[in-house]
């Protein structure tokens, strides 16, 4: 069996120093098969973007990897230190969330797409420019020759996002990390960008890790799913199974809080309470203060991901209870 395209083992990311130090991400282990798509889901602040940035080696200042290993196709990629960028060159690339800050405002977009082919792949200026036009066309930028000469502020949000995907692909990566690339766009453009990503995955054999808080997007694009809460993975499994029959109350809460247009009565139900302060994590399961299934056990037991059958894992003591009680789909 082929090793997974990307495998993250027991990642922990710390913020700050001294008494204010806390772990934003702890014990995160996920993997994605070659050519597969992994969705990383959770509410704002759950650590999903930090996890992605750690994989990319682009943690913001103040954050550092405390422990963990990263394997790409069986070979080790450093998570911190000097060789971080070199190791990811031509292997891993990233698409960012906000099309308004993702492009250099004073550079023509064609030049921005041509930059990596020119410097990293070592093409001549002319070939790099042709390559940039190819990439823009491939990413569905209309009339790429003209758009290449434009500055970012002259393009629409959707086109900017396409340019950002073209830039990510310009260094010829095998793995594409997407940090909520559709969040800042309106729904029709979102659908176009998702279709583009699916299309690119098939044509280029890309492996995609997709971070989002939008479960509808995940259902559309991803075959595997990892749900994160308060810096830990609480549930993993095949997307359809997880969405149809969640085995963690947090996943169910996320599903219930989303608007379901197909349901006869669709009243989104928010999850009560807020994400815990990472400096004062609740003992036991971090979700127990907000959980309607919580038992006294949940407040003391340090829950871990456990196999719950059919290639799925859940970090809930009462997952069996949930499996019996829920009938989704």
């Amino acid at each position: 069996m082929k090793p997974p395209a990307l495998e993250l083992r027991e990642l922990a990311v710390e913020f700050g120093q001294g008494p204010g130090r806390f772990r934003a991400v702890e014990d995160v282990s996920v993997s994605v098969a070659d050519g597969g798509t992994l969705g990383l889901v959770g509410e704002s602040g759950c650590g999903k973007s930090i996890t992605l940035r750690a994989v990319m080696g682009l943690l913001p200042s103040g954050a550092q990897v405390a422990s963990g290993r990263l394997l790409a196709g069986g070979s080790e990629l450093p998570l911190a230190g000097k060789g971080v960028r070199a190791a990811r060159r031509r292997r891993v690339a990233m698409v960012f969330q906000d099309p308004s800050s993702g492009l250099n405002p004073v550079m023509r977009v064609g030049a921005q797409v041509a930059e990596a082919p020119r410097t990293v792949l070592g093409l001549s200026a002319r070939r790099a420019r042709d390559r940039a036009l190819e990439l823009l066309a491939m990413c569905g930028v209309p009339d790429p020759k003209r758009r290449a000469g434009a500055f970012p502020h002259q393009l629409s949000g959707g086109t900017r996002q396409r340019v950002m995907i073209a830039i990510a692909l310009s260094s010829e990566p095998r793995i594409l990390l997407c940090d909520e690339p559709t969040t800042a766009l309106d729904v029709t453009i979102q659908a176009q960008i998702l279709r583009l990503l699916q299309d690119l995955r098939e044509r280029m054999g890309l492996t995609i890790v997709f971070v989002t808080h939008n479960l509808a997007v995940v259902g559309e694009l991803c075959d595997e799913l990892a749900v994160m809460y308060a810096g830990r993975v609480v549930e993993t499994g095949a997307t359809r199974q997880v969405l149809d029959r969640p085995r963690h109350p947090y996943t169910l809460g996320l599903l219930r809080s989303a608007v379901d247009l197909d349901a006869p009565v669709s009243e989104p139900q928010p999850i009560p309470g807020v994400l815990p302060d990472p400096l004062h994590r609740p003992a036991g399961c971090a979700f127990h203060p907000r959980c309607w299934l919580a038992t006294p056990d949940c407040t003391v037991t340090d829950v871990r991901l456990e196999d719950v059958g059919a290639g799925r894992q859940s970090a809930c003591l009462n997952h069996q209870h949930l499996a019996d009680a829920t009938r989704h789909g």
Partner: peptide, 14 residues
């Protein structure tokens, strides 16, 4: 701290 700088670094630029 803006994304395009991160993107440039992610793309392998020196």
């Amino acid at each position: 701290e803006l994304d395009w700088v991160a993107a440039a670094r992610a793309g392998g630029l020196s």
